[in-house]
Design a protein around this nucleic acid. Structure first.
Length: 821
RNA sequence: GCGAGGGUAGCAAAGCGGUCAAAUGCGAAAGACUCAAAAUCUUUUGGCUUAGUGCCUUCGGAGGUUCGAAUCCUCUCCCUCGCACCA
């Protein structure tokens, strides 16, 4: 122990691993295992315990799988483009490229110091032209297939970040990065048609071994809903419009229609009418908040327009309202106050008729409704559909509408197409040229990459690319005339949507990857990352995979079979982060206790998927265990104690299961118990000890590597196999014996206490009388040490035993008799 | 409102039908070592009781299933996180 310098040992083995290429992954015939972690954004210049936790999980899995004989791919890279780097660089009066490269160098070095078993030959950085040219290539493919398109639309715009945002990047109406309110702007932008995959993105979730929570979040986000589009005619015109409903069974109960306040149709229809002015002022009240607010009182504006019911021809007033979502369904909603609570409230407020068309099975209806009836029932007052059960009526009425060409059965999604243009510098240039003659011209594949110019000036205002003449001014690939380049860059979520494929073939100059290599490694067997990407990265990556499959480049549907969401590390009740100023860095902990202790502790505190609170005292406990573990090395000898063999064998059996199920905390608890139990033993056989080192090496790799080599082993423990456990050594009877000894210790303590209470005097000598065949179970020295009093152990049939009070007769199997004096 | 996950001893956290007054770590208390402290080691840590025993009350709350519940079911309260006027 005295000569155990953690820092030195860590460096020594990290060097050795690198020198021997212990973690290099190569395609082969062996079973593969792809262990993938979400690659980081290289912004900080240190790693804190949150990082240690996240990466340790992956490292433990990778090391364990290697030991199990799998061909493991465990790569790391950097999500290097993006706004924070750009802003940080501007602030530091540096260039984003310099800033990013420096950050990457630092983080790579720090990661190596954690002893993570990455194959660094496969490192990928998204800001390098070798990488982002393939972003551009994919973009062109998408354009070719009609998945990428340009359109003018109201889009989310963040003034602080000076760029547009995808819907997924707007959280509660605020920008996900800066938390400032997002506004809607009419802009012409590039979109990816992720909605083309909506249904598949939804159904594919069922095949994944993911956290139910994440899957549910994606389901919600995609928001599939099946219903009917009903065509209404505007009174006095031939103009028709559609209304989406999931309740066509209540069609005869419609008494009014509502539409989104800003529905484009409304503006046109009201132009020049007497109501126009009132409509404008109504809009004022609505425009106060861009986002719909549940808590807000429902407001309506009677447009004075009427629609005709498609089946009855009834006149239905049309209201503009503040509660109808403009871009969901058709922006029009039919008002059925009797069977929808919102419509009911609205009808009450504006004194609109309420017409009941569904009654409960008993046929009674409540004439004075206090609230909408939304349950099941039988149709009434619905012409020829009377008497139908309402679920059935949904189908029948829809079919009827379809037949009359007054409706269609449709599926609506909440998911919107992905807005991918960003008005910022630090990203992949969109490979498009605008030519006054030829229009929108894609940059030919041969001309890729469209390099992001390095020589630009950051004024802090707007996208510097716009003012970079050398970049903007170009010639049209088609007509060779003067043309301008697209100056928007791609959303960085594009970079991270396929990086895991590039790891499989990172140096490919001819293609984004070799499909054969990808076919070997993918899909990733284990993906590890935070929950925050549930509807961002994780959705986009799935979309990309499906697109690339349709291009014939990959053969699978889902990139990540298993997903593990690690819990966050808190300190002082808050997430450990730079902005909270509550970070505990890996370096400071490692300097004090060694990085293995940090890993052991952080994996021990709780199940890896749970959030934990950092505890400065707690790590001391883990350090103690490491030290005791190292001290065990002195006990290694040839003598094989069957109890020791039993303990280690059963520990390893359990540990293997804990590794499989990513419940390292449980394995570590057993490890702690094992270490404290072994600490009392005389000797550990070399074979058992080596198997213990092997078993623990995924969690505390440096310490185990060192101890392994101190035994004279010339190999690296990192490349050894999982120990074969001799199950014949496992014998539960040993546990029974141990429990009996434990019980005896506590009995002795108890008696000593009672003696003191009764006589007021400390007992000075303890005698233990054991059945003859159990004598070996009770080692006087060990008992003495634990009880803190001198102890003598006699067999009950020992004629020379000292037993003045004849206690020996009370001894039972597993329960020795005691005497204290 | 909808959905997901939780509520276990001073704290953190295992346990998920009997072996449970409940692992493990931290904290606390006592003891050993030491001139002393630190480190290390040992013991104790729901209550009452007892020469090593027995009993009682506990696992958010209330009921239920069972010979038997921290563990299963129902209802309820609280927390955390998503989604939310989606028609």
């Amino acid at each position: 122990m005295a000569d155990f310098d953690f820092k030195k040992i860590e460096q020594k083995w990290q060097k050795e691993w690198e020198k021997q290429g212990a973690f290099k992954a190569k395609e082969g015939k062996k079973d593969k295992f792809y262990c993938l972690e979400m690659f980081p954004y290289p912004s900080a210049s240190y790693l804190h315990m949150g990082h240690v936790k996240c990466y340790s999980i992956g490292d433990i899995i990778a090391r364990f799988k290697r030991m199990q004989g799998k061909n493991v791919l465990y790569p790391m890279g950097f999500d290097a483009f993006g706004l924070p780097a750009e802003n940080a660089a501007i602030k530091a009066k540096s260039h984003p490229a310099t800033y990013t490269n420096d950050a990457i160098a630092t983080i790579r070095k720090l990661m190596k110091e954690l002893g993570l078993s990455y194959d660094w030959d496969r490192e990928v950085s998204t800001h390098l032209p070798d990488y982002y040219r393939w972003n551009q290539w994919i973009f062109l493919k998408m354009l070719e297939k009609g998945i990428a398109y340009r359109k003018k639309a109201p889009v989310n715009y963040c003034k602080t970040c000076a760029t547009t945002l995808a819907n997924e990047e707007v959280i509660d109406g605020n920008c996900w990065r800066c938390d400032q309110p997002v506004s809607l702007e009419q802009l012409e932008q590039w979109f990816f048609k992720i909605t083309a995959y909506a249904d598949e993105l939804l159904s594919g979730l069922d095949t994944l071994q993911w956290n139910e929570r994440v899957k549910e979040m994606q389901r919600n986000w995609i928001g599939k809903s099946e219903g009917t589009k009903v065509t209404f005619i505007l009174e006095g015109t031939k103009q028709s419009f559609e209304v989406f409903t999931t309740r066509p069974d209540t069609l005869y109960g419609v008494t009014f229609l509502t539409c989104a306040a800003r529905h484009p149709l409304l503006g046109d229809l009201l132009k020049g009418t007497p109501q126009e002015k009132a409509y404008r002022s109504f809009l004022q009240t609505v425009s106060a908040s861009e986002k719909l607010d549940v808590t807000k009182e429902k407001e309506g504006f009677n447009t004075g327009l009427f629609a005709l019911h498609p089946l009855t021809g009834e006149r239905l007033p049309i209201f503009a309202s503040n509660f109808v979502v403009a871009d969901y369904g058709t922006g029009f909603v039919m008002g059925v106050p009797a069977h929808d609570q919102r419509d009911f409230d609205f009808a009450q407020k504006y004194a609109l008729p309420i017409k009941q068309v569904i009654c409960q099975v008993n046929g009674k209806i409540d004439k004075k409704m206090k609230e909408a009836y939304i349950g099941r029932g039988i149709l009434i007052d619905s012409d020829t559909f009377d008497g139908l059960e309402n679920e059935k009526a949904k189908k029948v009425i829809s079919a009827h509408l379809v037949k009359l060409k007054k409706g269609a059965i449709t599926t609506e999604y909440r998911l919107r197409d992905w807005l991918v243009s960003r008005q910022r510098y630090w990203g992949t240039p969109i490979p498009i040229v605008y030519c006054s003659k030829c229009g929108i011209v894609p940059v030919p594949e041969k001309q890729l990459p469209v390099q992001l110019p390095v020589d630009v000036t950051f004024t802090g205002k707007g996208n510097p690319l716009v003012t970079c003449k050398a970049f903007v001014e170009t010639s049209c690939p088609t007509c060779k005339g003067k043309a301008k380049r697209e100056t928007d860059t791609m959303a960085t979520f594009i970079d991270s949507s396929w990086y895991y494929l590039r790891y499989c073939d990172p140096d490919n100059k001819k293609a984004l990857f070799d499909s054969k290599k990808v076919a070997y490694w993918m899909p990733a067997d284990q993906y590890i990352g935070g929950m925050e990407h549930a509807v961002l990265h994780l959705l986009y990556a799935r979309f990309f995979t499906k697109f690339l499959r349709d291009c014939g480049l990959v053969t699978f549907d889902e990139p990540f079979q298993k997903l593990f969401n690690q819990g966050i590390v808190h300190k002082g009740g808050e997430r450990m982060s730079k902005s909270h100023g509550n970070t505990v860095t890996a370096e400071e902990i490692s300097a004090k206790y060694g990085i293995d202790t940090a890993r052991l502790f952080i994996m021990f505190v709780a199940s890896p998927d749970k959030a934990i609170e950092w505890d400065d005292k707690g790590i001391e406990g883990a350090f103690k265990v490491i030290k005791r573990f190292i001290a065990l090395a002195d006990k290694v000898g040839k003598v094989s104690d069957p109890i020791v063999d039993h303990k280690i064998a059963s520990f390893l059996t359990q540990l293997e299961k804990n590794y499989e199920s990513i419940e390292f905390n449980k394995g570590i608890v057993s490890f702690m118990e094992l270490v404290s139990s072994l600490s009392e033993k005389e000797s550990i056989s070399r074979a058992a000890y080596e198997s213990l080192l092997l078993g623990m090496s995924p969690i505390i790799p440096h310490v185990c590597e060192e101890l392994w080599s101190r035994l004279g082993n010339k190999t690296l423990i990192a490349t050894e196999s999982w120990p074969k456990v001799d199950t014949s050594k496992i014998n539960p009877a040993f546990d029974v014996v141990e429990q009996a000894v434990e019980k005896t210790v506590s009995d002795i303590m108890n008696v000593l206490r009672l003696v003191k209470e009764k006589t007021g005097e400390e007992g000075t000598q303890v005698y233990v009388y054991v059945l003859p065949k159990e004598v070996g179970n009770y080692a006087p020295d060990s008992l003495t040490k634990r009880v803190g009093k001198p102890i003598r152990v006699f067999a009950v049939n020992d004629p020379k035993k000292y037993d003045p009070q004849g206690k020996a007769g009370k001894a039972k199997p597993g329960k020795p008799a005691l005497f204290v004096e």
